[in-house]
Design a binder for these strands. Structure first.
Lengths: 334, 334
DNA sequence: ACTCATAATGAAACCTCTTACATTTTCACT
DNA sequence: AGTGAAAATGTAAGAGGTTTCATTATGAGT
């Protein structure tokens, strides 16, 4: 069943059928109605390949995340898919893991599928090699299709970034903890990403601003795993920290488990703040205070900017920042 | 940059270039080497649309889930994407929600993108209308492309199902609780899906087998939300149940919160079992005993069967069952 | 050197759509 | 009725691959 069959049955040329399919104004109402009826009846759908060959688009966006089973990432994908689908775009998903090689492999696979744009979520930097090396594949991809980063920052032609204001949020959280009398705030992270660095800078700035010396021994790096986070904290000397600011809710849950193990009361003896305000927060006991980095807004902004770029509209800025808020629950006393 | 450019530069015909691209044996080593070099150097990739037009495939599989932000679903998608990517297939993701109309819309969008097969995850039945009505869109889709259900059951030409043995697992869990002296086991679910019904049947069979009357008042239905599950349990009379078997970890966490609210000790006063063995289990406090429905195996089986079907191999059975196990943690005393 | 089977290559058809341009139809106005 | 502009429709040329079939090149066996 192709456009010729429809044309023959309707007694018109294929050009007319094509015009009807694309809602062109230069077809008489009478013809339009007749052709539409036949299209309807025979459940004809145009061949996407032939269409793509002509139009050079398939209305598909590539979405690449490091790990979809992560609560934060899956939320991001959920929003992106929803917004894109609303606008008639399909979503090719890739889960790359954190290695550069895997990311590159996924990106080139997506490019070969002729996506209209590429969205990269988080983790643009794996911590091996220089930033330039690490992000070169992004600029390379951007030479073929517009690239949109979510919570990442890369400068380059055709690269657009949308991020939550992690610097500010981290600063705010740290100040809150200091106001609560905390002086030895552990900074717990699992990433060298742009976001993680922003958080670290906000944290350090707040300490400096409050005349608290920065103690690098309080900045802990661990794989994103609840038990590993717990064990790392357990390996630290008792009382070496009085609160934990984690760059991810999973790590914060690890801190909760640490406190349980040590018999520390939360939040009296140990305050804990997570990040992403994910589903883990209310699953945790006590429920976790966390930074709400407003995924929904970040995603809707990204899609909005993406559509503008595809529309060849001018004036889409390279960078875009979205504010965060703090979701207060029971692991802090603010 | 197209096949003609390569052909011209190499001084061969486009047919030869095409053969080189597809690793055809009927090209001399010398020519192959020369052409490959030029392809490499000019970073030529064949146009997917032209290729699709000829081959009628884009090596893309549609994956439709109701809710990707669900820990279980995102795990399933993670495995599917990994296995499919390994085999050179891309993944078009759709998040449909639970309504039939949305599912149909997503399926037809995917079909219009010319997927090679469609994988539907869970929830084939939304509870409105008869099973036949609810699943008709699946058979319709199956007339255009092979359909693979994960933890769903629909009979039809070109429909292949892979499911975990939820009936058996539910039976086993219920027997364990009974062996622990529980007599009033609440069955908490959020779905009318095939899986949920299998679990219910296993639960009821175990009760009957143990000469415990089935009390419909103990079978509770609630939206998949931790707080709603907690509140529903709080609304029941005290001591009306002594344990909870939930068909999803989120609901089980709701039960944990209920017990906390009521001051019940877990597992002494209240045993709780979840389902899916998701990341919520270790996040919960106490950590949740849960049925491990072996997502990895279900997904690898699905992909394996899918590849066989695409390969036109015979003998792919319509149904395939994978065994479950119980991940014992701290909300039960077995 | 001459066959002849086989390997290597090329020409052209085909896949199904979009669209620029050409042609035909319509119809208001004289 | 005749004219001419505007509207409707059709023709044919791409878009960029794959593949069949025909043709040419190769080289082993005599």
């Amino acid at each position: 069943m192709n456009i010729y069959d429809i044309a023959k049955e309707a007694g018109v040329s294929i050009a007319t059928v094509s015009r009807v399919m694309n809602d062109s104004p230069k077809v008489s109402e009478k013809t339009k109605k007749k052709v539409k009826e036949i299209i309807e009846r025979s459940e004809y759908t145009p061949n996407i390949f032939a269409q793509g060959l002509g139009l050079n688009t398939m209305h598909t966006i590539g979405v690449l995340v490091p790990r979809i089973s992560d609560a934060y990432m899956s939320s991001v994908v959920a929003f992106l898919e929803e917004y894109l689908h609303d606008k008639g775009y399909g979503c090719i998903l890739g889960c790359s893991g954190y290695s550069r090689a895997e990311k590159e492999a996924h990106v080139s696979m997506m490019l070969s599928k002729h996506i209209d744009a590429l969205i990269l979520v988080g983790s643009t930097y794996a911590g091996t090699g220089t930033i330039e090396e690490e992000t070169d594949y992004i600029r390379k991809a951007a030479s073929k299709t517009p690239v949109f980063l979510i919570n990442g920052l890369v400068n380059g032609e055709n690269v657009y970034c949308t991020a939550s204001n992690d610097y500010q949020a981290a600063y705010d959280v740290t100040i809150k903890l200091i106001e609560n009398g905390r002086r030895r705030i552990a900074f717990l992270t699992d990433s060298h990403s742009y976001s993680a660095n922003q958080k670290r800078m906000g944290y350090e700035t707040a300490l400096t601003y409050s005349n608290i010396p920065i103690d690098k021994a309080l900045q802990l790096f661990v794989k994103n795993d609840i038990y590993q986070a717990r064990d790392l904290l357990l390996s630290r000397p008792d009382h070496s920290f009085d609160s934990v600011f984690a760059t991810d809710d999973g790590l914060a849950v690890g801190a909760v488990k640490y406190a349980g193990e040590k018999g520390l009361r939360i939040p009296e003896d140990m305050e804990i703040v997570g990040y992403n305000n994910s589903s883990l927060c209310i699953c945790s006991n006590p429920e976790l205070t966390s930074v709400d980095n407003c995924i929904s807004k970040v995603c809707s902004d990204t899609v909005e900017r993406l559509l503008k770029v595809l529309d060849k509209k001018e004036g889409v800025s390279a960078h875009n920042i979205v504010g965060c808020s703090i979701a207060r629950r029971n692991t802090t006393s603010f």
